[in-house]
Design a protein around this nucleic acid. Structure first.
Lengths: 339, 339
DNA sequence: TTAGTTAAAGCAATCGGTTGCGCAGAGCGC
DNA sequence: GCGCTCTGCGCAACCGATTGCTTTAACTAA
């Protein structure tokens, strides 16, 4: 199970050791192992066998020095502790890890608050990564600027209005539009929209989708029912209180974090879902799926987003063809909370 | 905000470049910057200033080659998708990242199913890390064996019976004992214990604590009420069904994952908490705190566990003094679910 | 004055690979 | 038999640091 050989420090076998054991030059061994250059069949076999016997393992650091590569992908994760409540990013990370490790890359993580690019800067300064995956983006993102300035290939899991950024996401605008249209068709006349941090591009997309759906339906929406900068439990509670007083019959939550808070506030006020008010969310974490009643939501697969982002950034690094701006499929999952 | 200088490729300034600009040798510059060796005040100032002007940034890869170091810490995270539901590990990771980055180290993550050390092996083989933090341990853990064989410093966030492993955890045995004793004092006579994977050492600790509390109370427990290898939603549902039939008045859940499932099963069967049955859990994720009713639990701070683990493994790497087996404090948080 | 110390800085090997270039020899056409 | 190409491989520079050893010069003590 271990890669360790029987000999004491044979794990330290270097290219040079293999070369000397065979009486050939380092370069020959290197070329055999890397598959580059012209090598006779005979020499190739000899080298392969000897390397295997000596349990030669290339030193990735040394290779990195020579090639100016690290074989690492950086992943910037949101820092707020509260976000831990929703496993979205953890599942993204899982997808990313699985994909990059299959290419013998590894993942270096940086936790950072929005707008704080200092961790990313450290990683770039220390030349720790060949490419980066951002898991969200704010307007005029300093992280994006930093990556561009340093010519480091990167992709974003999420949406941004910056067309020069490769984006991996579901189409939040059309998803929110679809969801809103569905609710309108269910007879909701006064739908509230609860969104998180205003500077996150994704919230703008959702807002646009919401507005589009209303425009297409010919009905008018109440701008006073749009809360576009909620943060923290208290803010959501307050908003829900106001919404009730304003006679809403439906709530769309920008994410599950807000949804959990809203549900909790509704329960406290003893307002029945979906009888008195309907509610829907985005992403639909497992925890919401086991809620009573089950929650209607736009479902996305964070694992798949992670996989796709990883594949894309690896393609960028290796100058392969890739699809700019992948929009993954989402699913409008209708559950009891909006019936 | 960026570290990039104005000159086009001054970001590539190497030790040699600085040395040549000053007409001194590489070693002198290196010694100044590393603070090792005897350097005159005058030269030191000259070098410092020039390095700053040229925006010299040491190449960590090259330094790593020379020193056989990577300035990376590996973190092995559980792979099961379901675990994403509980942000415990995400919060551990946050604590780890914050601590190691303050020492200019970075975090390399490996996602791995229990018993699967292949990702860790890859990372070790590729010499990507100077030390490792394990976030759980199974009996005869192949990861532990691998780390020992390769003489890589590591700590475990969690508990194990292997005394040679440095452990960072709360004392699950005494915590579970305390919780059980409290429930006994509340008049629970038939308490069920729902534990996860049997091969996880932490579940053994909880089991022991449970038994201890009963022994000290002089009362007897019903071994048929101990479920010690639950995995998956269905298993928990089945167990809850049986428990009800067996006339239990209380459930202790080994973790929040099980607790969420159990609560969901109870709700389905319309069994009131805490009127018909009491329930308590471990860790108490934010999601459970906003549950109705709030859940009694042993509270631990995963962020603090991460911080402590990171500090400890860094001490091990740098041969500093450290505390073996840190037991962090926990808190028995009594809520409505057991009243 | 001379030998002995010592501080300051340079030389060059080393870490473990990659890679451009050149050389020797085989094969081939004319 | 001559020149040409092509194959297979070695030489040595290079990536960008660290570090043991040596050198130089200045300073101290005898």
């Amino acid at each position: 199970m271990s890669f360790l050989p029987n000999e004491k420090n044979a794990s330290k076998a270097s290219l040079d050791d293999v070369a000397k054991a065979l009486g050939v030059s380092k370069s020959t061994v290197s070329r055999v192992l890397s598959g580059k250059g012209r090598i006779s069949e005979e020499t190739r076999n000899k080298v392969m066998q000897c390397a295997a016997e000596m349990n030669y393992q290339p030193n990735v650091i040394a290779r990195g020095l020579a090639q100016s590569k690290t074989f690492n992908i950086g992943v910037v994760l949101p820092y707020e502790k509260d976000l831990g409540e929703i496993p979205f990013f953890q599942n993204c990370l899982t997808g990313i890890c699985e994909t990059v490790s299959s290419m013998d890359y590894d993942v270096v993580v940086a936790m950072a608050a929005a707008d704080d690019a200092s961790q990313l800067e450290r990683i770039i300064r220390n030349r720790k990564v060949d490419g980066v995956i951002l898991t969200r983006s704010v307007i005029n993102d300093p992280a994006v600027r930093l990556l561009k300035e340093n010519s480091i290939p990167f992709v974003l899991i999420g949406s941004t209005s910056d067309d020069s950024v490769v984006q991996i996401d579901i189409d939040h605008e059309s998803a929110c539009s679809e969801l809103t249209a569905y609710l309108l068709s269910r007879g909701c006349s006064r739908t509230a929209l609860l969104l998180g941090n205003k500077s996150h591009n994704v919230n703008l997309s959702r807002y646009n989708g919401f507005v589009n759906a209303y425009e297409q339906s010919g009905k008018a929406f109440d701008a006073a029912l749009i809360y576009d900068n909620l943060s923290g439990r208290r803010a959501v509670e307050l908003a829900v209180g106001e919404i009730i007083n304003k006679g809403c019959d439906c709530i769309i939550c920008g994410d599950d974090y807000i949804c959990v808070r809203a549900l909790s506030a509704l329960k406290e006020k003893q307002i029945a879902v979906p009888e008195k008010i309907k509610i829907a969310s985005f992403y639909n974490s497992p925890i919401l799926q086991s809620y009573t009643p089950p929650i209607t939501a736009v479902n996305a697969d964070p694992f798949e987003l992670g996989e796709t982002a990883a594949r894309t950034v690896l393609s960028l690094i290796n100058d392969e063809d890739f699809c700019k701006d992948v929009f993954l499929s989402y699913e409008l999952s209708i559950k009891k909370s909006t019936l």
